[in-house]
Design a protein around this nucleic acid. Structure first.
Lengths: 126, 126
DNA sequence: ATATTATAGTCCTATATTGGAATATGTCAA
DNA sequence: TTGACATATTCCAATATAGGACTATAATAT
């Protein structure tokens, strides 16, 4: 069996792996709810492409639609993006500035510890 | 020309769209640097698969390798994950609790404003 | 009813990606 | 050098995806 990655339509991570879809989400975030036609204009992509991306985003649950006349107005439904946020957040502590600080601290502590043990156990008041 | 999404090996978002790769990153985060063989055991996937995923993560720059004898030890290089973090962070304000609060506030304000205009323009001291 | 507009969905094709097996490469030990 | 081990890479087949053109559906206007 050849199972590739989880389906685009069922995994938020995969859904936002496509730049155009991220762009759509950004637009919905900054400009509020938008009709498909508006998105088509803003993005400059063919309508069928936009609709298909919206379909993916809809199925994965990061956007919501409602009809307004003959238009379909899409809006952000960002809750599932929190999943992504929570995931990357785990790695926060490993980003450079954090890392540098933590690492040097840890190393210094280790060195001092070793030193104390190797030499005379003198405790400074610092 | 048929350009699909950005290459897995050049886009962090795409790189982490694959669950196994996320799993690898998680392992490197929680257990520190690990040799490929260890990862193979921990993940239970065939070595070639693990190596290939590591290759992607390496090319995209979220892991670093160094040789230790005949082993290759991989470690996290989380800086590029910050990109992802920063991106999703934009949507923070749209998550439910936030959204609910902000939305109702805005709506109430709008309603009050409309009311004031429709009726007698009385300004409370609040 | 019919035309028009807005959008979704379908069909087709090119491409990227993945897994698996087998193989190549590199490193150490005897 | 030869062999054993650790890992990367290559080749192949299956699948998912994306774009493009076209068609279907739905809502509105005439």
């Amino acid at each position: 069996m050849r199972m590739a990655r989880a389906r685009t339509t069922s995994d938020v991570f995969n859904a936002i792996a496509e730049p155009r879809r991220r762009q759509i989400l950004e637009l919905l975030a900054t400009r509020g709810a938008l009709a498909v036609g508006t998105l088509v204009v803003l993005l400059g992509h063919p309508q069928s492409a936009v609709s298909k991306h919206l379909g993916v985003l809809r199925k994965v649950g990061v956007v919501a639609v409602f009809k307004q006349g003959k238009q379909r107005v899409y809006s952000l439904d960002a809750n599932r993006l929190k999943t992504v946020h929570d995931w990357v957040k785990h790695f926060e502590q490993f980003w450079d500035h954090h890392l540098a600080r933590i690492k040097t601290l840890a190393e210094r502590r280790a060195r001092e510890h070793a030193f104390v043990h190797k030499s005379q156990q003198q405790k400074g008041p610092s």
